[in-house]
């Protein structure tokens, strides 16, 4: 086994020590601190960015809440307006109906009066006509001259028509 050849031990140990010590010194003095630095910087940056993202999220949430509150308020207002409008409309229509009813009642009463007047006049004319007819008939058939007032009275009492 070549590994057991003791003559090769010394040169191997010398070069191993040399290379490893150089490696160790360069690593511990220069390279590892540099790598550590950048890892640390990245960790800080990530933590910072996460914080910023969280703050932004909080703000977005606040904005959303404000927005929702605004919407809710507007909605309540709209509902109030709607109810008021409805009430006003109902009141207006009720008033109009009352007015219409009153007009109708007045016109009906006037018409009734007119009708009653017309009826009275018609009755009067009929009575007069009946008295005249009766007067003429008496004179012609019986030969009695009845004066106009008596005939009219009789016609009214007997109730012609």
């Amino acid at each position: 086994m070549p590994q057991l050849d003791t003559a090769t031990f010394m040169p191997q140990l010398v070069w191993l020590a040399l290379t490893f010590i150089v490696l160790y010194v360069v690593l511990s003095r220069r390279l590892l601190p540099r790598i550590g630095e950048i890892l640390e910087a990245r960790k800080d940056k990530i933590a910072h960015d996460l914080g910023a993202a969280e703050a932004a999220k909080k703000q977005a949430e606040a904005t959303l809440a404000a927005y929702e509150a605004g919407i809710a308020k507007a909605r309540v207002e709209a509902l109030g307006l709607h109810a008021a409008a409805q009430e006003a409309a109902a009141k207006a229509s009720a008033q109009r109906r009352e007015e219409a009813e009153a007009t109708l009642a007045r016109e009906g009463a006037a018409a009734d009066a007119a009708i009653a007047a017309a009826k009275g006049r018609a009755l009067g004319e009929i009575r007069e006509a009946a008295a005249e007819i009766a007067q003429a008939a008496l004179a012609r058939i019986v030969g009695i001259e009845v004066d106009r007032a008596t005939a009219l009275k009789a016609a009214t009492d007997e109730g012609v028509a």
Partner: peptide, 9 residues
């Protein structure tokens, strides 16, 4: 000390 530069080195 034998510090020869070998293929191992």
């Amino acid at each position: 000390v034998d510090a020869s530069f070998t293929n191992a080195a």
